[in-house]
């Protein structure tokens, strides 16, 4: 039913919802994130930045939650942060991911004050809340190059 585009930078166009031969519309399109994926292809983690109130936002933001400005730009993240929450996944429906279990999904609190869900890769044993993380980029089971975080900064 869904067709997945292969180029990461085209993520933002969403999925085509099809009913037989009929194109019904786009599922979760968000063209405002195109710049984020272009950054990923260069191994850069970009956040939305409001210069009016000097606040970083999740890459999906269209308007600033602080002041309402729609004049947001891309700003490169330090890639540094801490583990805010995590879960070790042992069962998942998708076969491509099931071959990799257990792996850890978690929320990272970036130093810029933005939270991102990501894959957490442990370098120093069990993962715990508040451990330091650093940014990396890997091609995961989805076949996409994605920002991931290594836990336990050496």
């Amino acid at each position: 039913m869904n067709t997945v585009k292969q180029d990461s930078s085209e993520w933002a166009e969403g999925l085509n919802l099809m009913a037989g031969p009929y194109f019904l519309g786009l599922y979760q399109p968000s063209p405002e994130t195109k710049g984020f994926w272009e950054g990923v292809s260069r191994h850069e983690l970009l956040l939305k930045w409001c210069s009016a109130c000097q606040r970083a936002h999740h890459p999906k933001r269209i308007v600033c939650t602080g002041c309402g400005s729609a004049d947001l730009s891309w700003q490169r993240s330090s890639g540094r942060g801490k583990v805010y929450s995590f879960s070790e996944v042992h069962h998942v429906a998708d076969k491509a991911f099931m071959a990799s279990v257990p792996y850890t999904i978690g929320l990272v609190a970036l130093d810029e004050g933005v939270y991102l869900l990501s894959r957490l890769l442990s370098e120093l044993g069990p993962i715990a809340i508040d451990q330091l993380v650093r940014l990396d980029f890997q091609v995961l089971e989805s076949g996409r190059l994605l920002p991931v975080f290594k836990v336990g900064r050496s």
């Binding site: 969403g14 968000s30 879960s87 996944v89 991911f97 869900l117 989805s142």
Partner: peptide, 20 residues
């Protein structure tokens, strides 16, 4: 679609963030 699913999330793993 872009910021969660590609990491291999399941419904329990999303609720597990709250549980954690």
């Amino acid at each position: 679609l872009q910021f969660e699913a590609p990491y291999g999330v399941s419904t329990p793993s999303l609720y597990a963030q709250f549980a954690c």
